[in-house]
Design a protein around this nucleic acid. Structure first.
Ligand code: FES
Ligand code: FES
Lengths: 149, 149
DNA sequence: CGAAAAAAGCATTCCAGAATCCTTTTTCTG
DNA sequence: CAGAAAAAGGATTCTGGAATGCTTTTTTCG
Protein backbone atom coordinates (compact mmCIF):
# COMPACT_ATOMS: atom_id res chain seq x y z
CA UNK A 1 0.00 0.00 0.00
CA UNK A 2 3.10 2.18 -0.36
CA UNK A 3 2.78 3.72 3.10
CA UNK A 4 2.47 2.19 6.53
CA UNK A 5 -0.93 1.63 8.08
CA UNK A 6 -0.07 4.15 10.78
CA UNK A 7 0.26 6.82 8.12
CA UNK A 8 -3.17 5.97 6.82
CA UNK A 9 -4.60 6.21 10.31
CA UNK A 10 -2.93 9.58 10.80
CA UNK A 11 -4.48 10.94 7.63
CA UNK A 12 -7.90 9.64 8.49
CA UNK A 13 -7.71 11.05 11.99
CA UNK A 14 -6.60 14.45 10.77
CA UNK A 15 -9.42 14.55 8.28
CA UNK A 16 -11.89 13.76 11.04
CA UNK A 17 -10.86 16.65 13.28
CA UNK A 18 -13.13 19.69 13.35
CA UNK A 19 -11.93 22.72 11.42
CA UNK A 20 -12.51 25.21 14.19
CA UNK A 21 -10.02 25.04 17.00
CA UNK A 22 -12.12 22.75 19.22
CA UNK A 23 -10.15 20.14 21.11
CA UNK A 24 -11.06 16.58 20.35
CA UNK A 25 -10.47 13.42 22.37
CA UNK A 26 -8.29 10.65 21.06
CA UNK A 27 -10.81 8.11 22.30
CA UNK A 28 -13.56 9.97 20.55
CA UNK A 29 -11.69 9.94 17.26
CA UNK A 30 -10.81 6.29 17.47
CA UNK A 31 -14.37 5.21 18.18
CA UNK A 32 -15.73 7.43 15.46
CA UNK A 33 -13.31 6.06 12.88
CA UNK A 34 -13.21 2.52 14.17
CA UNK A 35 -9.46 2.58 14.66
CA UNK A 36 -7.49 0.87 17.44
CA UNK A 37 -7.64 3.27 20.35
CA UNK A 38 -4.26 3.36 22.12
CA UNK A 39 -2.47 2.95 18.84
CA UNK A 40 -4.14 5.99 17.39
CA UNK A 41 -3.32 7.91 20.56
CA UNK A 42 0.35 7.24 20.03
CA UNK A 43 0.14 8.33 16.43
CA UNK A 44 -1.54 11.57 17.44
CA UNK A 45 1.25 12.22 19.93
CA UNK A 46 3.73 11.84 17.15
CA UNK A 47 1.85 14.37 15.08
CA UNK A 48 2.04 16.80 17.99
CA UNK A 49 5.82 16.56 17.93
CA UNK A 50 5.73 17.19 14.20
CA UNK A 51 3.81 20.38 14.91
CA UNK A 52 0.81 19.24 12.95
CA UNK A 53 -1.37 18.81 16.00
CA UNK A 54 -1.52 20.71 19.26
CA UNK A 55 -2.64 18.99 22.42
CA UNK A 56 -3.64 19.95 25.92
CA UNK A 57 -3.90 17.53 28.79
CA UNK A 58 -6.45 17.22 31.49
CA UNK A 59 -10.19 17.65 31.38
CA UNK A 60 -11.43 19.67 28.44
CA UNK A 61 -8.21 18.75 26.73
CA UNK A 62 -7.60 16.82 23.55
CA UNK A 63 -6.08 17.36 20.13
CA UNK A 64 -6.60 20.00 17.48
CA UNK A 65 -4.94 21.07 14.25
CA UNK A 66 -2.24 23.72 14.62
CA UNK A 67 -3.26 25.29 11.30
CA UNK A 68 -6.33 25.42 9.10
CA UNK A 69 -6.77 22.15 7.28
CA UNK A 70 -5.93 23.59 3.90
CA UNK A 71 -2.50 24.58 5.20
CA UNK A 72 -1.46 21.05 6.11
CA UNK A 73 -0.29 19.02 3.16
CA UNK A 74 -0.56 15.29 2.86
CA UNK A 75 3.14 15.19 2.05
CA UNK A 76 3.95 16.83 5.33
CA UNK A 77 2.00 14.20 7.24
CA UNK A 78 3.55 11.35 5.31
CA UNK A 79 7.02 12.74 5.95
CA UNK A 80 6.26 13.08 9.64
CA UNK A 81 5.06 9.51 9.84
CA UNK A 82 7.36 7.65 7.51
CA UNK A 83 10.48 9.69 7.92
CA UNK A 84 12.07 11.73 5.17
CA UNK A 85 13.45 8.66 3.41
CA UNK A 86 10.14 7.24 2.34
CA UNK A 87 9.95 6.35 -1.35
CA UNK A 88 13.68 5.86 -1.58
CA UNK A 89 15.19 2.70 -2.94
CA UNK A 90 14.55 0.66 -6.04
CA UNK A 91 11.03 -0.57 -6.84
CA UNK A 92 12.36 -4.01 -7.44
CA UNK A 93 14.45 -4.07 -4.31
CA UNK A 94 17.79 -3.91 -6.02
CA UNK A 95 20.42 -2.38 -3.79
CA UNK A 96 20.84 1.33 -4.40
CA UNK A 97 18.53 3.10 -6.80
CA UNK A 98 20.50 5.71 -8.67
CA UNK A 99 20.75 6.83 -12.24
CA UNK A 100 24.09 5.03 -12.57
CA UNK A 101 22.81 1.53 -12.87
CA UNK A 102 19.07 1.77 -13.31
CA UNK A 103 16.82 -1.24 -13.29
CA UNK A 104 14.35 -1.56 -16.18
CA UNK A 105 11.64 0.08 -14.13
CA UNK A 106 13.81 2.91 -12.92
CA UNK A 107 12.58 5.58 -15.31
CA UNK A 108 8.97 4.66 -14.84
CA UNK A 109 9.49 4.59 -11.12
CA UNK A 110 11.23 7.94 -11.01
CA UNK A 111 8.31 9.47 -12.87
CA UNK A 112 6.00 7.81 -10.40
CA UNK A 113 7.89 9.14 -7.44
CA UNK A 114 7.90 12.71 -8.61
CA UNK A 115 4.27 12.46 -9.61
CA UNK A 116 3.16 11.08 -6.29
CA UNK A 117 5.25 13.44 -4.25
CA UNK A 118 4.03 16.45 -6.16
CA UNK A 119 0.45 15.29 -5.71
CA UNK A 120 1.17 14.88 -2.05
CA UNK A 121 2.44 18.40 -1.64
CA UNK A 122 -0.62 19.65 -3.53
CA UNK A 123 -3.24 17.77 -1.58
CA UNK A 124 -4.15 18.99 1.87
CA UNK A 125 -6.11 17.69 4.79
CA UNK A 126 -8.96 19.84 3.59
CA UNK A 127 -9.23 17.66 0.51
CA UNK A 128 -9.47 14.61 2.73
CA UNK A 129 -12.30 16.23 4.67
CA UNK A 130 -14.20 16.72 1.45
CA UNK A 131 -13.67 13.12 0.59
CA UNK A 132 -15.06 12.09 3.93
CA UNK A 133 -18.14 14.21 3.46
CA UNK A 134 -18.77 12.58 0.13
CA UNK A 135 -18.38 9.25 1.84
CA UNK A 136 -20.98 9.98 4.50
CA UNK A 137 -23.45 11.55 2.12
CA UNK A 138 -23.23 8.56 -0.13
CA UNK A 139 -23.82 6.19 2.77
CA UNK A 140 -26.81 8.19 3.91
CA UNK A 141 -28.33 8.02 0.46
CA UNK A 142 -27.81 4.32 0.35
CA UNK A 143 -29.41 3.60 3.74
CA UNK A 144 -31.92 6.35 4.59
CA UNK A 145 -32.53 5.18 8.16
CA UNK A 146 -30.47 2.53 9.87
CA UNK A 147 -31.48 1.89 13.49
CA UNK A 148 -28.62 1.05 15.85
CA UNK A 149 -29.83 -1.73 18.22
CA UNK B 1 9.80 -0.48 -1.70
CA UNK B 2 6.44 -1.40 -3.20
CA UNK B 3 7.22 -5.10 -3.42
CA UNK B 4 8.39 -7.61 -0.86
CA UNK B 5 12.07 -8.39 -0.44
CA UNK B 6 11.40 -11.94 -1.59
CA UNK B 7 10.24 -10.57 -4.93
CA UNK B 8 13.44 -8.61 -5.26
CA UNK B 9 15.47 -11.70 -4.50
CA UNK B 10 13.50 -13.66 -7.09
CA UNK B 11 14.22 -11.09 -9.77
CA UNK B 12 17.88 -10.93 -8.94
CA UNK B 13 18.20 -14.69 -8.94
CA UNK B 14 16.44 -15.04 -12.27
CA UNK B 15 18.71 -12.43 -13.80
CA UNK B 16 21.73 -14.34 -12.56
CA UNK B 17 20.77 -17.63 -14.19
CA UNK B 18 22.62 -18.59 -17.38
CA UNK B 19 20.68 -18.15 -20.61
CA UNK B 20 21.47 -21.57 -21.97
CA UNK B 21 19.60 -24.39 -20.33
CA UNK B 22 22.37 -25.27 -17.84
CA UNK B 23 21.16 -26.24 -14.40
CA UNK B 24 22.35 -24.04 -11.61
CA UNK B 25 22.58 -24.77 -7.89
CA UNK B 26 20.55 -22.75 -5.41
CA UNK B 27 23.57 -22.57 -3.13
CA UNK B 28 25.67 -21.33 -5.99
CA UNK B 29 23.22 -18.57 -6.80
CA UNK B 30 22.90 -17.46 -3.22
CA UNK B 31 26.61 -17.22 -2.67
CA UNK B 32 27.13 -15.44 -5.94
CA UNK B 33 24.46 -12.86 -5.14
CA UNK B 34 25.08 -12.69 -1.42
CA UNK B 35 21.51 -13.64 -0.57
CA UNK B 36 20.34 -15.78 2.36
CA UNK B 37 20.77 -19.36 1.18
CA UNK B 38 17.81 -21.43 2.39
CA UNK B 39 15.46 -18.54 1.92
CA UNK B 40 16.42 -18.15 -1.70
CA UNK B 41 16.02 -21.88 -2.18
CA UNK B 42 12.43 -21.67 -1.05
CA UNK B 43 11.79 -18.75 -3.33
CA UNK B 44 13.17 -20.68 -6.26
CA UNK B 45 10.88 -23.58 -5.43
CA UNK B 46 7.96 -21.19 -5.60
CA UNK B 47 9.07 -20.05 -9.03
CA UNK B 48 9.13 -23.66 -10.15
CA UNK B 49 5.47 -24.01 -9.23
CA UNK B 50 4.76 -20.83 -11.16
CA UNK B 51 6.34 -22.47 -14.19
CA UNK B 52 9.05 -19.84 -14.43
CA UNK B 53 11.81 -22.18 -13.39
CA UNK B 54 12.32 -25.88 -13.96
CA UNK B 55 14.25 -27.97 -11.48
CA UNK B 56 15.77 -31.39 -11.27
CA UNK B 57 16.85 -33.04 -8.07
CA UNK B 58 19.88 -35.09 -7.29
CA UNK B 59 23.44 -34.69 -8.43
CA UNK B 60 23.87 -32.59 -11.55
CA UNK B 61 20.50 -31.09 -10.73
CA UNK B 62 19.55 -27.50 -10.02
CA UNK B 63 17.36 -24.80 -11.47
CA UNK B 64 17.02 -23.32 -14.92
CA UNK B 65 14.66 -21.01 -16.76
CA UNK B 66 11.75 -22.70 -18.51
CA UNK B 67 11.91 -20.16 -21.33
CA UNK B 68 14.45 -17.80 -22.84
CA UNK B 69 14.95 -14.81 -20.59
CA UNK B 70 13.29 -12.39 -22.95
CA UNK B 71 10.07 -14.41 -22.74
CA UNK B 72 9.70 -14.00 -18.98
CA UNK B 73 8.25 -10.66 -17.97
CA UNK B 74 8.95 -8.92 -14.72
CA UNK B 75 5.22 -8.62 -14.20
CA UNK B 76 4.82 -12.35 -14.37
CA UNK B 77 7.43 -12.83 -11.67
CA UNK B 78 5.92 -10.18 -9.44
CA UNK B 79 2.48 -11.73 -9.83
CA UNK B 80 3.89 -15.15 -8.97
CA UNK B 81 5.56 -13.80 -5.86
CA UNK B 82 3.09 -11.25 -4.56
CA UNK B 83 -0.12 -12.79 -5.69
CA UNK B 84 -2.42 -11.25 -8.25
CA UNK B 85 -3.72 -8.64 -5.81
CA UNK B 86 -0.51 -6.67 -5.52
CA UNK B 87 -0.91 -2.95 -6.08
CA UNK B 88 -4.53 -3.01 -5.03
CA UNK B 89 -5.87 -0.74 -2.36
CA UNK B 90 -5.58 2.97 -1.71
CA UNK B 91 -2.15 4.62 -1.53
CA UNK B 92 -3.14 6.30 1.66
CA UNK B 93 -4.55 3.20 3.22
CA UNK B 94 -8.16 4.26 3.09
CA UNK B 95 -10.50 1.31 2.97
CA UNK B 96 -11.46 0.40 -0.58
CA UNK B 97 -9.89 2.21 -3.48
CA UNK B 98 -12.50 2.66 -6.17
CA UNK B 99 -13.57 5.45 -8.43
CA UNK B 100 -16.66 5.99 -6.27
CA UNK B 101 -15.03 7.80 -3.41
CA UNK B 102 -11.49 8.57 -4.50
CA UNK B 103 -8.93 10.02 -2.14
CA UNK B 104 -7.02 13.10 -3.35
CA UNK B 105 -4.20 10.95 -4.62
CA UNK B 106 -6.43 8.47 -6.38
CA UNK B 107 -6.03 9.79 -9.90
CA UNK B 108 -2.29 10.17 -9.57
CA UNK B 109 -2.11 6.73 -8.08
CA UNK B 110 -4.20 5.12 -10.78
CA UNK B 111 -1.90 6.60 -13.37
CA UNK B 112 1.02 5.27 -11.41
CA UNK B 113 -0.43 1.80 -11.22
CA UNK B 114 -1.11 1.50 -14.89
CA UNK B 115 2.27 2.97 -15.71
CA UNK B 116 4.16 0.60 -13.45
CA UNK B 117 2.19 -2.44 -14.47
CA UNK B 118 2.64 -1.69 -18.14
CA UNK B 119 6.36 -1.23 -17.60
CA UNK B 120 6.38 -4.51 -15.77
CA UNK B 121 4.77 -6.39 -18.60
CA UNK B 122 7.21 -4.78 -21.01
CA UNK B 123 10.38 -5.47 -19.08
CA UNK B 124 11.78 -8.98 -19.14
CA UNK B 125 14.41 -10.90 -17.27
CA UNK B 126 16.67 -10.27 -20.22
CA UNK B 127 16.62 -6.58 -19.39
CA UNK B 128 17.68 -7.41 -15.86
CA UNK B 129 20.58 -9.44 -17.19
CA UNK B 130 21.76 -6.47 -19.18
CA UNK B 131 21.55 -4.33 -16.08
CA UNK B 132 23.68 -6.80 -14.22
CA UNK B 133 26.29 -6.83 -16.93
CA UNK B 134 26.48 -3.07 -16.80
CA UNK B 135 26.90 -3.42 -13.08
CA UNK B 136 29.83 -5.77 -13.29
CA UNK B 137 31.54 -3.92 -16.07
CA UNK B 138 31.33 -0.72 -14.11
CA UNK B 139 32.78 -2.38 -11.02
CA UNK B 140 35.64 -3.80 -13.06
CA UNK B 141 36.47 -0.43 -14.47
CA UNK B 142 36.49 1.04 -11.00
CA UNK B 143 38.82 -1.60 -9.52
CA UNK B 144 40.98 -3.12 -12.28
CA UNK B 145 42.36 -5.95 -10.13
CA UNK B 146 41.04 -6.82 -6.72
CA UNK B 147 42.75 -9.84 -5.13
CA UNK B 148 40.50 -12.06 -2.99
CA UNK B 149 42.45 -13.03 0.17
C1' DC C 1 -6.25 21.60 47.93
C1' DG C 2 -7.95 17.11 46.20
C1' DA C 3 -10.13 14.37 42.78
C1' DA C 4 -11.01 13.31 38.19
C1' DA C 5 -9.98 13.73 33.19
C1' DA C 6 -6.99 13.40 29.65
C1' DA C 7 -2.51 13.30 27.13
C1' DA C 8 2.44 11.51 27.54
C1' DG C 9 5.52 8.03 28.08
C1' DC C 10 7.10 3.40 28.58
C1' DA C 11 6.99 -1.62 28.55
C1' DT C 12 4.74 -5.45 26.75
C1' DT C 13 2.24 -8.46 23.64
C1' DC C 14 0.85 -9.98 18.94
C1' DC C 15 1.53 -11.12 14.31
C1' DA C 16 3.17 -11.53 9.55
C1' DG C 17 7.12 -11.66 6.74
C1' DA C 18 11.98 -12.90 6.72
C1' DA C 19 15.21 -16.30 7.47
C1' DT C 20 17.01 -20.84 9.23
C1' DC C 21 17.11 -25.83 10.21
C1' DC C 22 16.04 -30.47 9.56
C1' DT C 23 13.90 -34.38 7.28
C1' DT C 24 12.29 -36.58 3.00
C1' DT C 25 12.37 -37.62 -1.79
C1' DT C 26 14.51 -37.95 -6.15
C1' DT C 27 18.27 -38.89 -9.22
C1' DC C 28 22.86 -39.62 -10.62
C1' DT C 29 27.22 -42.40 -10.24
C1' DG C 30 30.20 -46.08 -9.07
C1' DC D 1 22.25 -51.75 -5.35
C1' DA D 2 24.58 -48.33 -2.18
C1' DG D 3 25.79 -43.87 -1.39
C1' DA D 4 26.00 -39.15 -2.27
C1' DA D 5 24.07 -34.84 -4.18
C1' DA D 6 20.55 -31.87 -4.55
C1' DA D 7 15.73 -30.07 -4.49
C1' DA D 8 11.21 -30.38 -1.85
C1' DG D 9 8.77 -29.83 2.14
C1' DG D 10 7.75 -28.78 6.83
C1' DA D 11 8.69 -26.92 11.37
C1' DT D 12 10.91 -23.40 13.75
C1' DT D 13 13.13 -19.06 15.01
C1' DC D 14 13.96 -14.09 14.35
C1' DT D 15 12.49 -9.50 13.65
C1' DG D 16 10.09 -5.25 12.98
C1' DG D 17 5.66 -3.10 12.69
C1' DA D 18 1.05 -3.19 14.72
C1' DA D 19 -1.52 -2.99 18.74
C1' DT D 20 -2.39 -3.04 23.88
C1' DG D 21 -1.84 -1.89 28.85
C1' DC D 22 -0.16 0.56 32.65
C1' DT D 23 1.91 4.40 34.97
C1' DT D 24 3.04 9.39 35.19
C1' DT D 25 2.20 14.13 34.44
C1' DT D 26 -0.64 17.99 33.53
C1' DT D 27 -4.87 20.54 33.85
C1' DT D 28 -9.54 21.67 35.16
C1' DC D 29 -13.10 22.06 38.62
C1' DG D 30 -15.56 21.51 42.85
S1 FES E 1 17.11 1.22 -9.84
FE1 FES E 1 15.18 0.27 -9.74
S2 FES E 1 13.94 1.99 -9.40
FE2 FES E 1 15.87 2.95 -9.56
S1 FES F 1 -8.85 5.92 -3.08
FE1 FES F 1 -6.83 6.42 -2.52
S2 FES F 1 -5.79 5.63 -4.23
FE2 FES F 1 -7.80 5.14 -4.80
Amino acid sequence: MLFSTATGYALRALAALPEDGTYCLAKDLSSRLGLPGPYLAKILQGLVQADILASVRGPKGGFRLTRPAHRITVGEVVAAMEGPEAMEGCVMGFPSCNGENPCPLHDAWSAVKSQVSSSMTQATIRDLQLMDIRHKKEAKERVPNSPQP
